[in-house]
Amino acid sequence: MIFQFQKQFPHLNSYWDRYLPLQKRLEMPARTKVLDEGIISQYAIYIEKGCLRTYFNNNGKETTVQFFFEEEGLSSLDSFINNIPSPYTIETIEPSVVYLLSKKHAIQLLEELTHEKDFVMMFMKITARRLTHYSGEFISFIRDTPEQRYLRLLNERPHIIQRVSQRYIASYLGVSTVHLSRIKSKLAKGNLHF
């Protein structure tokens, strides 16, 4: 959601103020689904407080795709744009406060923003940042071992290690919780390096 970039683009604050009454503010306990896999996404989501994850059902086993935190936005984008069932579930993993902006109002907001000076460049930078991140994640999952992915996570995104439960981190890395414990044990003994 575009509002996650308010700090980088302060002129978005006037849009936030204008669109705030059109958003649903929800206080949600941990493990609350914001969107179910297979349902068409109708909202852009902005996180004021808390942590959410996206995951899909992999033959009865949950596979975590990504984590999102304060001041980040998300949606099941393909579902949201193309009116197709979402390939994954969006769920809170901490007590969270989220804002939901309907598709109608999100499109209206984007249409208004197209008249802003430098909006296209800003939007391209935002999109490039996300695509670069996801491409890196995809390549890492193919190329790197679970140990390398854990070390990268520890070095580049330590807040995930600090805030997210081990079972979700294991699911994100594509390993069992037992395997994750072994990785952490090797790291504690100094037997694991980049």
Rank of each mutant, 00 (worst) to 15 (best):
C51F: 09
R53G: 11
L52F: 02
V34A: 11
V34F: 11
Y15H: 05
M28P: 01
I47T: 03
K49E: 13
Q66C: 09
P29D: 00
F56V: 02
R18S: 05
E62Q: 10
P21H: 06
R18T: 04
I40P: 13
Q6M: 14
K61V: 12
Y19K: 04
N59G: 04
R31C: 12
Q6V: 09
A30V: 08
P29W: 00
G60R: 06
Q42W: 11
D17W: 00
W16N: 02
Y19I: 01
R53H: 14
F67N: 06
P10Y: 07
E37A: 04
S41G: 02
L35G: 00
F67Q: 08
K33L: 14
F56C: 04
V65Q: 11
W16V: 05
L35E: 00
G50V: 01
R31Y: 15
Y43Q: 10
K49R: 14
L26K: 04
I45V: 14
Y43G: 05
M28V: 08
Q23G: 10
Y43D: 13
Y43N: 13
S14V: 07
Q8L: 10
E62W: 01
T32F: 10
K49S: 09
L35Q: 00
R31D: 15
R25E: 12
G60A: 07
S14P: 03
K33W: 09
F56H: 10
F56W: 05
K33P: 05
K24S: 12
F5M: 06
S41T: 00
F56N: 04
S14Q: 14
Y15C: 03
T32N: 11
P29E: 00
S14M: 07
G50I: 03
L20E: 14
Q4W: 01
Y55W: 13
D36A: 14
T63H: 10
L52A: 08
N13V: 12
K61L: 10
R25Y: 01
F9L: 11
